[in-house]
Design a protein around this nucleic acid. Structure first.
Lengths: 223, 223
DNA sequence: CGACCATTTGATATGGATCAAGCGATGTGG
DNA sequence: CCACATCGCTTGATCCATATCAAATGGTCG
């Protein structure tokens, strides 16, 4: 990994910008090296040393695990603005791939850690990010005990919320990605979406674009 | 919550013991107030302010969420030595109950936080605990995409591992607790255990005690 | 245009849920 | 101390949601 060409576009790496103390995000912007990843290319693999921290600038990333029998479990989708890949120690427990052509800021973990050792605000921010991720995964657990329809609807609402509550979402990921995230088959995802369209809860102008027509109905459906 | 009687057994609260710097666990032992919780009593509830940190001394704790339709999702079982209930900010997102009569150390979060602000080692330990919990929940997600048998077997192996790899486990929790943790019904848990007994993979001397007879077979079964 | 891939739709199979009854242990009151 | 109620667990019968297998459709790119 990290075998892609760094972009060094300049506007992403403003060495003139002052370091904001107690600001992890700002530090990452400043210290991070922007890199381009092609669609489906690996960003890091399971069991690799976790020496870097990542922040999505554009595009989308999936983190996942392949089980012994070949099934794939997608653990998360990371969208622009999201940071990912930080472990406290040792190795990555998941693999990460770009879902579409993506630009990603990459920062050495050691740099962030030494910053955190000096600045308690940064340390706290690192902790806070991990705790927020923990809550997200807890919601994922809650999603996985629901029915297929509830899972699909929860996913749609989650994506809409992450798009600042927009009433339409453009999905960077395939039906297979969604299915592996929700723990169902692509057929079930597809049928459920078709069903929601028939029920006038959503519109499907194209397979990767979903308009949420009846937000209330959807909220009711997801539990 | 916190309406139980503190034990103050003395041997749990050794004010003579020196504070080990960079040691969160030690600080909790020293600063924590031991409290007794009866079977099924609430330790804290969802949406309560998260002002305390907890460490199980004896007994067992479940954290859970009740969904809108009444279903219960058990997120974790906490056993002696485990810490739980720490949020970075704001409120608890889960409820916690003692599964059996339990003794639990309770520490004010503000005390730990001020310690962390002064001592980077403690701050890092807090972060590390959160990250470890994150990994546990990620494994829970992976468990929930598997078949019922794989879930039950994974649960047994998890419990055995937490009992220092013992070949027999004494379960403090009911079948219903296990079912709500695994996202299946009690009938499925029961039938699966019976099936494993028929297959000579386990023995069931009593419903709360399970002997792992064929560890290899079990490992194979859970994927 | 034709090949390829993602998605949808259809037909059938099945794992686990649901409904229902039985069983064993524990505790309580007569 | 025993009869009986209660509770947690197991076992059985049936049903249904979702998986699986299969084919058709549509969109994209050379």
């Amino acid at each position: 990994m990290l075998n892609q060409t760094a972009l060094h576009t300049g506007n992403l790496r403003q060495s003139t910008r002052p370091v904001a103390a107690h600001d992890l995000a700002g530090s990452v912007e400043m210290m991070g090296a922007p890199m381009a990843f092609a669609r489906n290319s690996e960003i890091y693999g399971e069991d690799e040393p976790a020496d870097y921290l990542y922040k999505v600038v554009s595009g989308a990333v999936r983190t996942y695990k392949i089980l012994a029998d070949g099934r794939r479990q997608v653990q998360a989708f990371h969208l622009p603005g999201d940071m990912f890949g930080f472990e406290v120690e040792g190795e990555h427990t998941l693999s990460a791939e770009a879902i579409v052509e993506s630009r990603i800021l990459v920062v050495k973990r050691s740099a962030i850690e030494s910053l955190a050792a000096r600045d308690h605000g940064v340390a706290r921010e690192l902790w806070s990010l991990t705790a927020r991720e923990l809550q997200r995964v807890q919601r994922h657990v809650t999603l996985l005990i629901k029915t297929a329809q509830e899972r699909v609807v929860s996913f749609l609402l989650e994506m809409a919320e992450r798009a600042q509550g927009a009433s339409a979402v453009n999905l960077p990921m395939s039906r297979q990605d969604i299915a592996d995230y929700l723990g169902v088959t692509i057929e079930t995802v597809s049928r459920t979406l078709s069903g929601l369209e028939s029920a006038a809860a959503i519109e499907l102008p194209s397979s990767r674009r979903i308009v949420l027509r009846d937000h209330n109905a959807l909220t009711r459906l997801c539990n």
